[in-house]
Write a protein that binds this DNA or RNA. Structure first.
Length: 425
RNA sequence: GACCCUAUCGUCUAGCCCGGUCAGGACAAGAGCUUUUCAAGCUCUCGGCACGAGUUCAAAUCUCGUUAGGGUCACCA
C-alpha cells in the first residue's frame, strides 16, 4: 500500500515551497492509488499557533489537496515518551538532565533516494542526537521517525533541505527496530537570486497568492512545472492528465527559480478559458472587499462586464483596476491620459454626441457605433479624433476595451452624463 | 570550514538511463500582422549544453577533475 504524508509545522503560513511538496506527495498518492496523510508537526509549543494551523488547512483545501488521514503530533507525546524509554532501557540512548540522547553508532549509512539514487554518509560526521528535549517534548527527527513508521508511510517525499536529516533518522529507525521507508528529496524553490525562496522575493504564502487573485488550478499547474515536466511540451496541464503522466523518477534534481511572470501568464490562460458565469462569481468576493457596502450588478449584467475584461486579466485583482470607472461614481483620471486627450476643449463635440446618444432606444454596440460615426462625419473629423477623448472622459484612461462595448457596459445614463459633465467643472 | 546535493537559452524545462536528429517547447525580451487605444491572439527573431581532460569513428548524453551555486551542521521543524 502506497502511503505518503505532508507534515507542515504550524509556525508559519503554508509556504509556496511547502505547497509544492504537498502537491508532489498528492500526485504520487493519486498516481499510485495510495493514501495521503496530513500530519501537523506542532511539537514546538511556543512557536506553534492556531491561526497558522487554520491558514494551512485553508490553503490545502483551496489548492484542492484532500487528505485521507489527519494527525497532530501534540496528541502523541505519550507515544514518543514510551519509545524514548525503550531506547533508554536497551542502552541505545542515555540521559543528560531531563533530555534523552541517542548514541550514534559508527557506520556508513546508505540512503536510497528515488530522485537522486544512492546517497552515502559516514555517521562519524554526525553527533549524538537529542531525542527528547528537557521540557519533555520530542525533537523533530524523533517524532518524525516514530510517526512515519507507525503511520506506515511507504515513501517520504520532502524538500532537499532534509537530506542531511535523513542519515540521522535512519539511525533512529534502526535503533527502534523499524524498517526505513523509501525517500524522495525534492529540489528547492529558489528566489530570483537563486537563494532559498524568502519574503524578500515577494509573496511566499499560498494565501498571499490567493489574495492577489491567482486561481488554485494555475498555482498548482505552475508548481508542478517547477521541477517536473510531462515531457510532451505541454504547459497548461489539467491535474487529471498530470497524474496520469506522473512519475517521481522524472523529477529534476536541481533547484528551480520561481518566476512570477510565468505564473501570471498561466493564470491568465486559466481565466480566459474559464466559464464567464463562474468567473463572475469569483469576482464578487473581490468586489465586495474593495467596495464594502456597495451593491453590484449581478447575474447577466456582471457577466457582461466580466466578458469585456476577461481577455486582459492576468489575475482576478486586475479586474478591479480595469473596472473602477464602472463601480464608482466619480472617474479617476489618469493625469497623462487627461493631458494628452482632454487638454483641448471638446465640449461642443461631447454635447453633440451626448444628445445623439440620448435618442437611442436600444443602447447597444451597434446603435452607439452608428450614432458615433454619424457625429464624426457631421463634424468632419476622423473617428480617432473623438474616440480617444471620449474614452478618457468615460473611463479616466486612454487604454481599455472597445469604446462602444465600454459605453454599453457603463450604461446610457452614465455615458451621457460623463460626456456632459466632463468640461463643466 | 566540514559534509551532502546540483549544473542545457535571462527563467522553467525536453533530450541524458540506452552516445549519432540544424539541441525542441514555454515564459520574458525584440519585430511584424491585426486594431479606435491598450491588452489578447497569430507569425517571426534573439538566446543555451559551466570549464578542462579522458573514452569513442562520434559526447549535452559515459568517466574523472575543476569551477560555480545551493543545502545541512540546534534541546527549530
Amino acid at each position: 500500500m502506497v502511503r505518503v504524508r505532508f507534515a507542515p509545522s504550524p509556525t508559519g503560513y503554508l509556504h509556496i515551497g511547502g505547497a509544492r511538496t504537498a502537491l508532489f506527495n498528492w500526485m504520487y498518492a493519486k498516481a499510485l492509488g495510495g493514501k495521503f496523510v496530513l500530519r501537523i508537526e506542532d511539537t514546538d509549543k511556543v512557536r506553534s499557533k492556531k491561526e497558522y494551523l487554520d491558514e494551512i488547512l485553508d490553503s490545502m483545501q483551496w489548492l484542492g489537496f484532500h487528505w485521507d488521514e489527519f494527525y497532530k503530533q501534540s496528541d502523541r507525546f505519550d507515544l514518543y515518551r514510551q519509545y524514548a524509554q525503550k531506547l533508554l532501557d536497551e542502552g541505545k540512548a542515555y540521559r543528560e538532565g531531563e533530555a534523552v540522547i541517542l548514541k550514534m553508532p559508527q557506520k556508513q549509512i546508505k540512503i536510497y533516494d528515488l530522485i537522486r539514487d544512492e546517497i552515502s554518509v559516514d555517521t562519524k560526521e554526525i553527533k549524538d542526537q537529542v531525542l527528547m528535549k528537557s521540557d519533555g517534548s520530542p525533537t523533530y527527527s524523533f517524532a518524525c521517525v516514530i510517526d512515519d513508521a507507525l503511520m506506515e508511510i511507504s515513501c517520504v517525499i520532502r524538500g532537499e533541505d532534509h537530506i542531511s536529516n535523513t542519515p540521522k533518522q535512519i539511525v533512529i529507525y534502526e535503533a527502534l527496530g523499524f524498517r526505513p521507508p523509501k525517500f524522495a528529496h525534492l529540489p528547492l524553490i529558489l528566489d530570483y537570486e537563486r537563494a532559498r525562496m524568502s519574503k524578500r522575493a515577494g509573496a511566499v504564502a499560498v494565501s498571499d497568492y490567493r489574495r492577489q487573485g491567482f486561481l488554485p488550478e494555475a498555482v498548482v499547474n505552475y508548481l508542478m512545472l517547477l521541477g517536473w515536466s510531462p515531457g510532451n511540451n505541454q504547459e497548461k496541464i489539467a491535474f487529471a492528465s498530470a497524474v496520469k503522466n506522473f512519475s517521481i523518477k522524472k523529477i529534476n534534481k536541481a533547484g528551480a527559480v520561481f518566476a512570477l511572470d510565468k505564473l501570471r501568464w498561466l493564470n491568465g490562460q486559466y481565466i480566459k478559458e474559464m466559464d464567464t458565469a463562474r468567473l463572475a462569481q469569483l469576482l464578487v468576493h473581490f468586489l465586495k472587499e474593495k467596495y464594502p457596502g456597495n451593491t453590484f450588478p449581478d447575474g447577466k449584467a456582471l457577466e457582461n462586464i466580466v466578458q469585456l475584461f476577461k481577455g486582459r486579466m492576468a489575475t482576478l485583482t486586475d479586474f478591479l483596476e480595469w473596472t473602477d470607472f464602472i463601480f464608482t461614481d466619480k472617474v479617476q483620471f489618469d493625469p497623462e491620459s487627461k493631458e494628452k486627450h482632454l487638454s483641448q476643449d471638446k465640449s461642443k463635440e461631447f454635447h453633440l454626441l451626448a444628445q445623439a446618444l440620448r435618442e437611442i432606444k436600444e443602447f447597444n454596440v451597434k446603435s452607439t457605433e452608428e450614432v458615433f460615426r454619424r457625429i464624426v462625419e457631421q463634424l468632419g473629423i476622423t473617428a480617432g479624433d473623438l474616440v480617444h477623448p471620449v474614452r478618457v472622459a468615460l473611463t479616466g484612461r486612454a487604454v481599455g476595451p472597445g469604446l462602444f462595448e465600454t459605453m454599453v457596459v457603463l450604461g446610457q445614463n452614465k455615458t451621457i452624463s460623463r460626456l456632459q459633465e466632463c468640461f463643466n467643472r
